[in-house]
Amino acid sequence: MSIEALVDLTGPGRYLDWRFIQISGANFAVIVLMLVVFVLALFLPFPGGRGAGKR
């Protein structure tokens, strides 16, 4: 049984450079995604959040 990746990430890495900052595209994507998810978690309404809280 052979399980091939659908997206090949083994090629030469892509890197972003600003002044002394170097970051791989993949790590940058992970960090941006964490921030996006954090912001979404703060802003998206939670189901049952409104109107709940009756004793």
Binding site: T10, G11, P12, G13, I21, I23, S24, A26, N27
Partner: peptide, 20 residues
Amino acid sequence: HLSGNQWGMMNETGNFPGQP
């Protein structure tokens, strides 16, 4: 891109995420 002066500790071979 794994050398110490390349922020290498965060990085992984290829295009995989490493240890951000």
